[in-house]
Design a protein around this nucleic acid. Structure first.
Lengths: 197, 197
DNA sequence: GTCTATAGTGCGATAGAC
DNA sequence: GTCTATCGCACTATAGAC
């Protein structure tokens, strides 16, 4: 039917994850990934502008989910409440069936500093997007940036816990707990009255 | 006296910043940087394991300053109070004389995604170090991670404002304000009682 | 698809400092 | 002699240009 198999990007993605898991990221070349699914290196780089990117496809979808959560928040919600809604929305993407895959993928990332850099960069771009969405709701720049960055931090911490082997709770539950812990920490500092300024 | 000029790394650093500023990061090769100070490409890579790293030397010093701030905090300080102390300590490194240099350097980073990735990575490693220092003080893992990551976020936001052309306040003052704003935001969410869980 | 520049590594040789 | 900074060369892989 088709001149080439559909879902080329997805096949490359799966092949890459498998090779990275067995041989490691640095000891796997783009050529090896491409040839393992019957393609050439050139085709790999047409789908993924750099080698690391093959592990981070689908992040655009995650950004959209965060933004959808922002939109769902009631009009009078405070910035942190909006971010809490975004966290709930984003967390719902990570169902229990995805946990094993997330673990495998994260194990690869945790082994390689270059991949960790890319991961942080992706998280930062989520924060930037959420900041923009908060600004669009009329939140001032400082509050928007702080709330968005804080939200992403909470998400990252929650995600790390979610993929622990002994963890049973849903990502949404963990994220809510982590956010609650943050509010507790800041409240304690607020009440002490011992901060500068 | 000496066969080789001392301070090779620093000379490479200055030359790199100048070339990056005029030609841009990507359009400057490691060879050009090295030869502009009478060295070879191979020597450049002996000092900096990768091309981006030449812009991020001195980050170890920043980490130490954060940790010194943690040490200075009173034993009964809460995690956020400890982080506030670390912020004060780290901020003091960035004196008014350093502002122009920081602006020049940041302008280069802001032009290049690969450099932004590295910058985020460096900030993340500060957070990791501060988390460790908090854990050593007996703070539990979740609180330590949250407080440290939050502190680094506050630092990054404050730094961005500090290098704005119209900004006059010291970095320490700005950081204290940003932290205060975070406490205000979280307190508002706490009080609303509208968060999940 | 092909071709090429550049990043980055490995290893041996050199040459001054001590 | 040892130690260390540099050079020179060969090499691979990434990534972008054509």
């Amino acid at each position: 039917m088709a001149r080439w198999e559909p879902g080329t990007a997805e096949r490359l993605q799966r092949a890459a994850l498998e090779l990275f898991t067995t041989r490691g990221f640095e000891r796997t070349t783009a050529t090896e990934i491409a040839e393992s699914v019957g393609l050439t290196e050139r085709t790999f780089f047409r789908h993924y502008s750099d080698k690391r990117e093959v592990l981070f496809h689908g992040q655009d979808e995650l950004v959209r989910t965060f933004l959808a959560g922002v939109d769902e928040a009631p009009p009078d919600a405070s910035p942190i409440e909006v971010v809490a809604a975004a966290l709930g929305s984003a967390s719902s993407v990570f169902t229990d069936e995805r946990r094993p895959h997330s673990r495998t993928r994260q194990a690869v990332i945790d082994e390689n500093p270059a991949l960790q850099e890319r991961e942080r960069h992706k998280l930062a771009s989520i924060a930037t997007a959420v900041t923009g969405a908060l600004r669009a709701r009329g939140v001032d720049e400082l509050a928007a940036t702080l709330a968005a960055e804080t939200g992403v931090t909470v998400f990252a911490i929650a995600f790390t816990r979610w993929i622990r082997e002994d963890e049973q709770r849903s990502l949404a539950d963990i994220a809510a707990d982590v956010l609650h812990e943050l509010l507790t920490l800041t409240a304690a500092a607020q009440d002490s009255g011992r901060l500068p300024r």
